[in-house]
């Protein structure tokens, strides 16, 4: 068991003992990962903020009705993502964000993070944000939970209610689509011979 999982277990035990005193710690621990997941699922900062707030408020209200034993045994992280993901799904069903413009003005092209990491990353982030939004929802959520949120396949299965095998295939297909589109877009944008693109691309390969 890794240290994050241990600290989540510890937090669950503290919540079981005294929910009101420790719920702030849940908010502090999970607001960031839940927010970026919601942000990349919806493409909108405003919606992500609302969804994250809503998920945490629902979580608190649910915990209030649970017994101490039940809280202590909870897989807190997966449970929180499940609440958030269901809220996102409900919203997606109401209006499919894929039919809306990718950048609604809230998710501006260059955030402070982009500027810090330099021009190359900025360009990549912009492309990646758009490509993630282009993935079918069930691929998008699987890829994001796996690599943005760092959930195990076991946790993902609990969040999404799909077997691990299915999720592995969906993550695989999602990654493949992202890779293809990235390559296609860099070829389309760079009016350079394919050999150059290839050399540039190899340059960002980790371990080179």
């Amino acid at each position: 068991m890794n240290t994050t999982a241990t600290s989540h277990q510890l937090l669950a035990a503290e919540l079981a003992a005294d929910l009101n005193s420790h719920f702030d710690q849940v908010v502090r621990t999970f607001q960031q990962p839940l927010y970026v997941f919601a942000l990349r699922m919806t493409g909108s900062r405003e919606e992500a903020e609302e969804l994250t707030q809503d998920a945490l408020i629902r979580a608190y209200r649910a915990l209030k009705t649970y017994s101490a034993d039940r809280i202590r045994d909870m897989a807190l992280q997966a449970w929180l993502y499940a609440i958030l993901r269901n809220l996102i799904r409900n919203r997606v069903r109401r209006h499919d964000p894929r039919t809306e413009p990718l950048h609604d003005g809230h998710d501006s092209l260059a955030g402070p993070d982009d500027i810090e990491s330099g021009y190359e990353h900025l360009e990549q982030s912009v492309a990646m944000r758009a490509l993630i939004m282009d993935l079918p929802v069930h691929h998008r959520e699987a890829v994001l939970l796996r690599y943005l949120s760092d959930l195990s396949y076991g946790e993902m299965s609990a969040v999404l209610g799909r077997p691990e095998g299915t999720l592995k295939a969906q993550v695989h297909r999602g990654l493949a689509q992202l890779r293809e589109r990235l390559e296609a877009s860099s070829e389309a944008w760079d009016l350079q011979p394919a050999g150059n693109v290839q050399r540039q691309a190899q340059h960002i390969r980790p371990g080179d």
């Binding site: 970026v36 990549q124 990646m128 890779r179 290839q198 960002i204 980790p206 371990g207």
Partner: peptide
């Protein structure tokens, strides 16, 4: 020309935004 690792690294960087 892109490895899965490179794509994954790009996905992870999408988390660099403060709540």
């Amino acid at each position: 020309s892109l490895t899965d690792d490179a794509v994954i690294a790009q996905i992870r960087r999408l988390g660099n935004e403060d709540a």
